[in-house]
Simulated scan of single mutants.
Amino acid sequence: MKEGPDIAHIAALIGDPARANMLTALMSGKALTVSELAEEAGVTIQTASSHLSKLDGGGLLRPRKQGRHKYFELASDEVAQVLEGLMGLAAGSGYLRKRTGPKDAELRNARVCYNHLAGDMGTQMFDSLMAQGHLNLNGEELELTKTGTAFAKDFEIDIEALCKARAPVCLECLDWSERRSHLAGSLGRAFLSRFEELSWAKRDQNTRIVKFSCNGTEAFNKLFSLD
């Protein structure tokens, strides 16, 4: 047997259509119940429980209990990045699900990728931060520069707290619809939280869509200009 990571095992876990649907549903960042995930996968609750047990055992999910209810969420940002990368690969290869009409355009414009902003507005933010010198690629590592730190602080993001946490501050995530990068990591999560706090944007609770208000869109475009 060859040595090294067994990617076939992880690929098999993700590759089952029902399990893939469950994992995609969890990309909204919300913790979901067995019944909710069963509905997403189009299977019975008993079958869904079996699938969730395998995903949990494979380290892809994290179960949580609250009172009598049990919820599931993605195990980490790393799992979300792998899923988004696979979505990009599938989209680039022409493997697309049937479009859902107007909501598809909204999904491509701005959506949640686990806990950060993705879609056209997500890539615009990333490109703007790079162009302004707030982010820098050091080899394959994405770094927050001194001007980026000042920029984030001016936007009332607690950079010191982010740096003390175990999660990476800046990560580059390939956007499946744009095929370009958007910002992940704790900084990407913090920016999305600030947009919501300022009422620039609001998440659609039934989809992954992030809806920006007219004022929010104007403020966003001013802050993350590509000029």
Rank of each mutant, 00 (worst) to 15 (best):
G188L: 03
A165H: 07
D77Y: 02
H182I: 11
L13F: 07
D204Q: 02
F126G: 00
S128V: 12
H9L: 11
M121A: 04
A110K: 00
K211V: 10
K164R: 11
H182E: 11
A152Q: 08
L187F: 07
K30N: 14
A190W: 02
M125A: 05
M22Q: 13
A219S: 05
N221T: 07
I159Q: 12
W200Q: 05
V112P: 09
G59C: 03
A18L: 09
S53Q: 15
S213A: 09
L226A: 01
A11R: 13
C170D: 08
G148F: 06
A152L: 08
A91W: 11
Y114H: 13
L32I: 06
D16Y: 06
K202W: 10
S76W: 02
K202V: 11
H51Q: 04
E143P: 12
E218H: 01
E78P: 01
K98H: 15
K2Y: 06
E3I: 07
Q46M: 08
A91C: 02
E160F: 11
R64F: 01
Q46D: 04
R189V: 11
L187K: 01
G15S: 12
A8G: 11
C113L: 05
D158Y: 09
G29M: 06
L198V: 12
L26C: 11
A190S: 13
L32A: 06
M1P: 03
A31F: 02
F212W: 07
L223G: 01
G185L: 12
K54T: 08
A41T: 10
R180A: 07
S199K: 13
K211Y: 03
H69E: 04
L23F: 13
N138Y: 10
W176L: 00
F220A: 00
L192R: 06
A152S: 12
D120G: 09
S93F: 11
I209D: 06
I14V: 14
N206S: 15
S50I: 12
S213N: 06
F126L: 02
G185R: 11
A219L: 04
L86R: 13
H69V: 12
I10C: 04
G92R: 13
N138H: 14
K54S: 13
D158H: 08
S76M: 04
H116L: 04
P102E: 12
H69C: 08
H116S: 12
E84M: 14
P102M: 01
K222W: 10
S225H: 03
D204V: 00
G29I: 06
S213G: 11
A152T: 12
T123V: 14
L61V: 06
Q132V: 07
A75D: 04
G119N: 02
T147K: 13
G122S: 00
A201C: 09
A91T: 15
H9D: 10
E156D: 15
G85I: 09
S49R: 08
R19W: 09
L174N: 02
Q81G: 10
R99W: 10
Y114S: 05
A118Q: 01
Q46S: 06
N138P: 02
C173A: 13
N215G: 00
E197I: 00
L192E: 13
P102K: 10
L83A: 05
V112A: 10
C214N: 03
T145L: 02
